[in-house]
Amino acid sequence: MDLTRREFILLSGAAGAGVALSSLGLDLGPLRAYAEELKIDKIKSAKNTTSICPYCSVSCGLIVSTDTKAGKIINIEGDPDHPINEGALCAKGASVFQTTANNPNRLTKVLYRAPFSDKWEEKPWDWAITEIAKRAKATRDADFIEKNSKGQIVNRVETIAHLGSSNIDNEECWTLNAMMRSLGVVYLDHQARV
């Protein structure tokens, strides 16, 4: 076959009609960044990390290939060694690539909306953590119920609520639970009930 390497790079990497979808607010531009080198070659030298699909709870295995020089994920596909999915992925699983930094729609800054404001403002983390902790403390201190009318100890706060999450790791769930119980939160629930 006499297809040149250059021709093939073009063939595989630059399909992009790239329909502009500004009406959706989405950047659907073609993923051209790696067209100069074949993706398959890049993957050979990439760092491979195993992961688990973030959607339904079949929990299929994934292999995430990261270009270590660019610090970017270049490919995600099924983990063929995983006994449940044996490399297979459904539509959502095959699309996990678009949950990563490759998707320009990701949130990358703390956003704050002030009372009665019509816009988001970007904020630094230290500010956000301090302000949230202050509000949680103020609400808790104002409304904490140590004893009910019968004199029984209840140590709870009924004016702070918590929801979530079936979508974070076990360890994160545990720390979240510890924080909420320590605050005295009783209105506490997550997706298991929807």
């Binding site: 992961s51 929990s59 990701r106 956003l111 009372p115 956000a128 790791d169 076990n170």
Partner: peptide
């Protein structure tokens, strides 16, 4: 929005392949 008082803190989270931990199927 001008009639809604709620302050909102929207915190940007790492996605599944950007952190380490376990999950149960």
């Amino acid at each position: 929005p001008k009639k809604i008082k709620t302050e909102v803190f929207l915190l940007p989270a790492a996605c599944s392949v950007e952190k380490e931990g376990s999950l149960s199927n």
